[in-house]
């Protein structure tokens, strides 16, 4: 009798922290690591939300019933990562909706002049990502280098061709000068080196330092200066901005995955996840 009573508080503790409540079906590392409130938020969502492709049941049931539906596992992980970060149920539901809006096929696609946009990654990959960025956008200064690393040497290596289009945001101080300098570097075939360098010095940005960074990125001073004052380079920058406006870009960064506007979360984990999802979908 005494022993039974002494077990009760221990059981209550484990029930409270969610350790003995399995996150039914969602056997993914991100979900299994959850405890407490985060676990209960994730449990609710995986047992009520549905994948937008490959299976009609809830995420939880799809994981059990359709092992071939990799999307269900991805979405469970997506939910659990957010729950672990302390996001509430509504925020995660909205994130799921935005992801579905972005990834559902066929979706509305836009035209982009890929021939004119510098590319990194695998040119033959089935996934083409076009990113409209501004060189004076703080968010871009964090996202673009991270995405570049993933595409060149990380989880997305060989799976994606990442194209960059410049979209100077007028409210950013010196946005025109910074973007024009990158357009000049692009005309000299040094866009990525230069762009990453300018982003690395984001907080120390000064127009006067653009030429020095060009030399650091391997461009000749005279060539860079010539490109910077070239009418053709400015025209290419205006063309890039106009293309963005035509495609409905109103903020940076804006990504298009295989021509579809991506309106989901822009953290690198989610980007890697959705691009891998697209890669699997085009490979099917």
């Amino acid at each position: 009798m005494t022993r039974t009573f002494s077990i009760l508080p221990i059981l209550a503790f484990f029930l409270g922290t969610g350790l003995v409540l399995p996150l039914a079906g969602a056997q993914t590392p991100a979900c299994d690591a959850l405890t407490g409130e985060a676990r209960s938020v994730a449990r609710y969502l995986v047992s009520t939300e549905h994948p937008y492709d490959c299976c009609d049941e809830t995420i939880e049931k799809c994981i059990k019933a359709r092992p071939d539906c990799q999307l269900a596992v991805r979405l469970a992980d997506f939910v659990c990562r957010r729950a672990a970060a302390g996001q509430d149920r509504t925020t995660i539901q909205r994130a799921l909706q935005r992801r579905a809006t972005s990834m559902m096929r066929p979706g509305r696609t836009v035209k982009t002049d890929l021939a004119k946009s510098p590319m990194v990654g695998c040119s033959k990959a089935g996934v083409k990502v076009v990113a409209y960025v501004c060189l004076r956008c703080p968010f871009c200064s964090k996202m673009v280098p991270e995405l570049y690393r993933e595409v060149t040497a990380g989880r997305l290596a060989g799976k994606v061709a990442l194209h960059l289009r410049l979209f100077p945001i007028k409210s950013h101080t010196n946005s025109m000068e910074a973007n024009l300098a990158v357009a000049a570097a692009a005309s000299l075939g040094r866009m990525w080196e230069y762009l990453l360098l300018v982003y690395r010095h984001f907080d120390a940005f000064e127009v006067g330092r653009l030429a020095g960074w060009a030399t650091e990125a391997g461009m000749g001073a005279a060539a860079f200066e010539g490109a910077l004052t070239s009418a053709a380079v400015k025209k290419s920058l205006v063309a890039s901005k106009k293309e963005g406006l035509r495609n409905g870009v109103v903020a940076t960064p804006t990504l298009f995955i295989n021509g579809r506007k991506y309106v989901g979360d822009l953290d690198v984990e989610t980007l890697v996840d959705v691009i891998e999802e697209e890669s699997e979908a085009v490979g099917r």
């Binding site: 956008c137 703080p138 007028k170 409210s171 804006t254």
Partner: peptide
């Protein structure tokens, strides 16, 4: 802290 930058339209 970091949020996407909108064009002020």
């Amino acid at each position: 802290v970091f949020v996407p930058c909108p064009e002020p339209l």
